[in-house]
Design a protein around this nucleic acid. Sequence first.
DNA 1: CGGTATCCCTGGCGATACTG
DNA 2: CAGTATCGCCAGGGATACCG
Lengths: 132, 132
Amino acid sequence: MGRVTEQVAAGEPGDAFDVFSRDCPSRLTLEHVTGRWGILTLSALAEDTLRFNALRRRVDGVSEKMLSQTLQALERDGLVIREAQPVTPPHVEYRLSPLGRETADRLLDLIRLVEGRMPEVLAARGRYDRAR
Amino acid sequence: MGRVTEQVAAGEPGDAFDVFSRDCPSRLTLEHVTGRWGILTLSALAEDTLRFNALRRRVDGVSEKMLSQTLQALERDGLVIREAQPVTPPHVEYRLSPLGRETADRLLDLIRLVEGRMPEVLAARGRYDRAR
DNA sequence: CGGTATCCCTGGCGATACTG
DNA sequence: CAGTATCGCCAGGGATACCG
């Protein structure tokens, strides 16, 4: 189930890029998307097209360097589109590509679930910690 | 939008745990879930209840230490249930809690999307790299 | 404004060895 | 089998300074 090594049956195209195998490129992309700053960046851009510093304010705690790196990785993977207008002062906007939007939708689903169930999580933590 | 600091309006319970703010506990849980090994562990357990070493084999590349740490964090957050039978040799099974299953479902959605769109991603990378 | 370059250091992580 | 303990590396990431 899901462990195709050589060729892919037509109709199951996903199996060619199985994230469960160590050096599949899909694992790297998944890490860009679900990384500490990637997930928050994509989710922020799902709400709005944003400029660099606006994004930096929205993603609380991210450094300039990490935001820059994150955006570059996401742009390279084709999830984020960078639009620079050659004016002074510079004006650069970041927005989601169609694929970026589909990805962000999934991430938002996940975030909403986690946020909404935090009371349950906190209760579980209490029980776990008390048990030792 | 989404930035409640003190109290929550009834009917918008998610906003109490906004992942966008730096020290919200939900951000930590989200990192456990979407972390490098967390996402793969949860996804593996979505297919099957698994024992430690079976899990280790399924999540290609994970070390014993990291798998152990990952499982502890997920158990503490109430996403994974650890069931130990006191026999020799030890027999321990890991499975998803109801919340763990809901979470894993979202992760699988995301994984399937990324896996299925890798050709698109790879093409974007090619374009990006050629442009410099 | 929108970044890149540099420095520096912590802690994430792998490797190895050991235990019940 | 199912882990814990210990060590040590190096890359992820923060802080700061600087550039177009």
